[in-house]
Amino acid sequence: MKKIFLLAVIILCGEIFAQDASAPKSLLTQRNVKLFADNLFCQRDFLRSIAEYENYLKYCNDDTVKFKIALSYSYMQKYSEAAAKFKLIDKTSNYYQDAYYEYYKNEFLDGNYEVFKTFFTKDTVTQFSDTGGIKKLSYASLLMQDDKINISEKDFLSAFNSEEQPYAGKFYLEKTNPGYKKPLKAALLSAIVPGLGKIYAGELGDGIFSFTLWGLSEYLAVSNIKHKHWARALIFSGTSALFYFSSIYGSAAQAQIYNAKVDFNFNVDFKSFLSSVNYFLPKEPDFCK
């Protein structure tokens, strides 16, 4: 009887002190959830940190957490979501000014340049003293758009300080004189000499091979016509025609690829410059010091 009693006591002790399914609930205090989310945030596990922060916000209205959620989206390069979240930060919040800058930064990164239109007027006044950054960003947005720039270099550079002006001037010149290749010119050159348009568009090897293949098929076509081998003559004439017209088409396409390359390289260089100056805006708060 004693043994049974002892056994029962031991088993019951196990039951009482065991960590059962309901135990984690006691761990899920608001404080713990926030701590866990903060840890995930600092580990740069932003997707999970957002989920935990959202859980936390069900119980507490916390501007810091809202800001961190927006920042997480921004770090994940989900710029439109980030901008929408930054816009939700209340004006009374301590983070409103940071959110204000981050909102414009994310709109810029998202390619939504419409929001910067209001900053082109010289008398733009906002609630913050340090609005020069956003004005610079709005001028920078002009270089990111496909449209032609309608303002002079002098006006453009006036938005930047003396340290930034050499860089801004360089990018302005690159944008206004991008050094594109003309597809029509490339096509015409290839119409004169197959492959010449490709060389003009920067592909020497393709140009030489185009000319060689066309020349070979042309020679075979002429040779077979001379020897009255009509079936072969027809095949090689067709091939020759295909190579000739394909060379014209391909040259125009190659010129557009070259232009896309110019645009892409410009965007990469300009974005890396903007990133190096943090988009002319104050640095976002560091929550993981």
């Binding site: 393709d206 091979f209 185009s210 060689t212 293949l213 295909l242 190579f243 017209f245 394909s246 060379s247 088409y249 391909g250 396409a253």
Partner: peptide, 11 residues
């Protein structure tokens, strides 16, 4: 035409 161009680039 795109195919012909690709064929030449292939060479």
């Amino acid at each position: 035409l795109m195919f012909g161009d690709r064929f030449m680039r292939d060479a």
